[in-house]
Design a protein around this nucleic acid. Structure first.
Lengths: 245, 245
DNA sequence: CTTTTTAAATTGGTAATACCAATACTCGGA
DNA sequence: TCCGAGTATTGGTATTACCAATTTAAAAAG
């Protein structure tokens, strides 16, 4: 009675992989023949599954080119927001407030649920983030920072949370990208940041939920205050310029 | 130059025939082999078209039986993320975990920042929610419940938070709609819910951030546990049915 | 050495065929 | 008239082959 079409099973499994982030938007799917043999199914069955996802708008197929995962899946939460943020710069801190609430929980559940591979991934992202510092590309460093935080969110094994956080990061990146370098180049800001990241990671790796939550919240409080200072400074600079006119 | 897949052409033609009434709901489609040869296409191509319409909910296929045109015409969801998460039942509790983290903050900031009109709006939504109880439409009651919570989020004056929460509510509604009535019809569940709502509202109206946060979190904890119980009970019911076979 | 051209490899699209499994139907027997 | 077994029908899956568009890389021209 539990007889499910295998094309449905395939479609479900692919959707799960997209939802879990194993397959990222814009990425290319393996060729049909290769994927079919890897999944141990026939090519027609795989194609039926692909057509379904295609009609749902999750995939995009170009004849002779390949099958790609459609972009614009995350913006379902974010899309209307980009317009808002352009009109209302103050809402930058709205994003930080939400991160403050969410990252604490993410760290908490990550400490509880993370598998060994999750932990290895977090460590790897931490190392690359450290390695990016001082090379001179603040945007690259910011991306590595975001990926470190997202690796913790992934380890929380909450798919909805992962999607929301991804949306928030793209939002944050696009709204304060020009001010990010300040956050990474000032030594008296970077050193505490690095320490906070390390404490957060260690709490998660050791499986201490409460400490992880506190570490995440302390980190976000610091980021929030640092950005506040930077923006205040910029504002006062603008004031000075205005006086000079 | 814009070459269309013939499976798409078939799907389109079938949809047109359904729309024009040439194929009526409940009616049976010709057998795949017959229809394929009548349309002059191969069976795999026809099958791909059928799978697409199948995943859109327009057709219903029974192995060995035949393919029928579905009676109920449901509004098809366009949101890809929604489509994904609807297929993953675990995501229900993912949403609740996030609400747990976010609604506490929303209540906190609402207590700090709400204007007089915000407070009036919250009161109004609370009254309508109470008024809906016992009339017999659980879905309507659930909607009023959601609007009450959203009125508090609005009062937090965080636009990004408002958008995220709206998305989460539609997700929650669509994923547990069939189980919602249990949450509102059982008296021993409704009474505590109502009290929690009142305490949350009072804390916000009186401008007590910490109490508001605690009230929101206590409420979510209760909802989470109640839904866990309901789902566990449903699962055990299914077990019993299975034993009877 | 760079640019352009061309040919081969890769990839999705379609078709034909065979066989399996579940269902529907028919016909014979009670 | 009803019921049950057998058969035909129907959807599900796999295999194979070939076509068409694209991509890639090698080769040729500058």
């Amino acid at each position: 009675m539990e007889q499910q079409r295998i094309s449905d099973q395939i479609a479900e499994s692919l959707m799960a992989k997209i939802a879990e982030g194993e397959l990222k938007p814009g990425e290319r799917l393996p060729a049909e023949r290769a994927l079919a043999s890897r999944l141990g199914v026939s090519r027609p069955s795989l194609r039926e599954a692909i057509q379904k996802l295609n009609s749902k708008g999750l995939l995009e197929t170009r004849r002779g080119g390949g099958t790609y995962i459609r972009e614009g899946i995350e913006p379902s939460f974010v899309d209307p927001l980009l317009a808002i943020l352009k009109e209302l710069p103050e809402s930058r801190f709205d994003v930080l407030e939400i991160r403050h609430a969410l990252e604490g929980s993410a760290a908490y559940y990550a400490a509880l649920r993370s598998s060994e591979s999750d932990k290895a991934n977090i460590r790897r992202k931490f190392e690359t983030m450290i390695g990016k510092h001082g090379i001179g590309d603040p945007m690259d460093e910011a991306r590595a920072d975001a990926e470190f935080h997202l690796s913790i969110v992934e380890a929380s094994h909450n798919l909805v949370l992962l999607h929301v956080m991804r949306g928030l990061f793209t939002l944050l990146m696009s709204s304060i990208s020009h001010n990010l370098e300040k956050l990474y180049t000032l030594p008296r800001v970077f050193q505490p940041l690095s320490n906070q990241h390390r404490r957060l990671m260690e709490a998660v790796l050791e499986g201490d939920p409460e400490r992880a939550r506190q570490a995440a919240q302390a980190h976000l409080t610091f980021v929030e205050e640092s950005l506040q200072q930077i923006f205040r400074q910029l504002a006062s600079n603008r004031e000075h310029l205005r006086e000079l006119n």
